[in-house]
Amino acid sequence: MTDTAQGHASSTGISNVKLGMWAFLGSECLLFGGLISTYMLYRGRVTGGPRPSQIFDIPFTSVSSFVLLMSSLTMVLAVSAAHKDDDRKTNLWLTVTALLGATFVGGQVYEFTAFYKEGLGFSTSLFGSSFYTLTGFHGVHVTVGIIMLMSLVGILKRSSVPGKKAEVVEMIGLYWHFVDIVWIIIFTLVYLIPV
């Protein structure tokens, strides 16, 4: 009676797992809302160390943002293949999505290292603390997403995924798209709007 993935009717017609993921993402909006508000309050408050405009490398971050957005496309292809029960293509696109995500995280690691060398540490200024916290939280979300994608590939190979395969792929897809959309907001507010 509890597992709609196993064919029981639900009152809304949407499965429990998918609706559960939507609810979770609703909650995540407020989490990023709080972090973004903190950053917006503190982004101009630099008592020591570099200012935002002195360290941001917009072309570099634009490229890594583009890579992340493309991963949403490959995620859609993975969900589509999963709905067609095409295991080979599902695995392929999930792996590509994870690789694109990893490229983005790699870019973020590089960026953090570069900023640190230019004198922006976590404790340097309010700008530093709030910048690393906001983008770090986003990076952790992408990393968790990559772990989920790769685990899914592994589980699909053993074909021991509980519930409907396409359902699980779609659920992780929802999470992935959400993380991408949040990045669009962060990129705009943090990098593109001058202080």
Binding site: T38, Y42, F122, S123, S125, L126, G128, S129, T133
Partner: peptide, 13 residues
């Protein structure tokens, strides 16, 4: 971890 969020000396609100 030494963040400055509530450190008034660093200009925190």
């Amino acid at each position: 971890f030494g963040a400055r969020f509530f450190d008034v000396a660093a200009g925190a609100d």
